[in-house]
Simulated assay, not measured.
Amino acid sequence: MIDHVGLAAGDFAKSKAWYAAALAPIGYRVMMEFPAQQAGGQPTAPARPRPVWPVKGPDPLPGAILPNQRIVAYYGNPLSKRMGILGEVPPDEMLRRLDREVRAWARADPETPVVPALHLIAVVAQGSAGRDGMYRARMSDSLIERVYGWAQRHKAIMFLDVQVGKSTLQAELPRLVPFLVRPDVHLAIDPEFSMKRGGLPGKRIGTYDASDVNHAIDVLADLVEKHNLPPKVLVIHRFTRPMLTNANRIKLDPRVQVVIHMDGWGPPWMKKDSYQAYVYAEPVQFTGFKLFYRNDTKRGHPLMTPADILALFPKPVYIQYQ
């Protein structure tokens, strides 16, 4: 007798027929059947509608960067050589390398002007609790000003990236407002290090909900309105489905341009699959793609080229190098 055994099946009818035929010679037959919910499973999910790109969002306001330009950014923190190219090499060398990438993208897609950017992790998730138990470190104003100075001298824009740890966007964004009121400073938020469901940064992958993203949008939209600024860009990192829940509830606002940014590392096929599964499959507004100089290539795989990335659909308009 076989009793209380559960087997997941992609096609219930075919699986049932196969097991019935396979077990019939030894006298087994179906005695009872239960609905999926009662048996501890899930009902068959309805087929997802095919993603629609481009997204029918608000028309770009004057001064908007996207979608008619592409941002190419260098990511990291000057206090660490392990967090990205922004801090891995001396500033002058870093900026020369950024120039090379900008030129490569301009050659690959001459019809789309390239905007260089420095993407600073301004709130850094930590493995230890810190004095306030929030598992994050806020970078000093002087450090932010230093990187902003590099960006200004290089005619680049700047992103401030927030890894909240056990804190919240509500607690972290107000301190960054004096920088975000500048027309060339934009925002990024990283669900990987938002530990709202428990756990510690670096030990498990965190999450944001659409409500968190909408809060960030509201903050930026309010700044744009009050200070008569050009639209802000908001980047949201993503490389798993649970990192961003209820993406279809993100509310678009013409004052804030939202980029869902594929942040996973690995061989090209894996990165393409992640882009398809977590960015293409759940349209929000614009898309981004991240390249890791070290992690993408450490097992002998090639770093994806601009031509490789331009073959994706939709074409990413925010490119980040770490």
Rank of each mutant, 00 (worst) to 15 (best):
R294T: 06
P78N: 04
D141M: 03
L291C: 11
V164T: 13
R153V: 01
N228I: 01
A8N: 10
R107A: 10
A22Y: 14
H186V: 07
D263G: 02
V124P: 03
F179V: 09
H4P: 00
A73H: 07
A281V: 05
A73R: 05
D141G: 13
D190G: 08
D212I: 03
A188N: 11
S140C: 01
G288H: 13
I309K: 03
H186L: 05
A221F: 04
D273N: 12
P78K: 02
R238H: 02
I319L: 15
R50P: 01
K251I: 05
G84E: 12
L303N: 03
Q42I: 03
A73W: 13
G130P: 13
L120D: 03
R100M: 13
W105S: 01
T112I: 10
K232A: 04
I157N: 03
S142H: 10
I71T: 06
N77E: 07
K155N: 15
Q42M: 09
V213Y: 11
Y321S: 01
S80W: 11
K315S: 08
V224M: 06
S140F: 05
Q257F: 10
Y28A: 08
M134S: 12
L303P: 04
R299T: 10
V30D: 02
D99Y: 05
P242T: 07
E225A: 11
H301M: 05
V256C: 08
K14G: 14
G206L: 06
H237P: 00
A106T: 08
T112Q: 06
G198R: 06
D212R: 02
R29H: 15
P25C: 09
Y318M: 12
V147H: 09
L187C: 09
G10K: 13
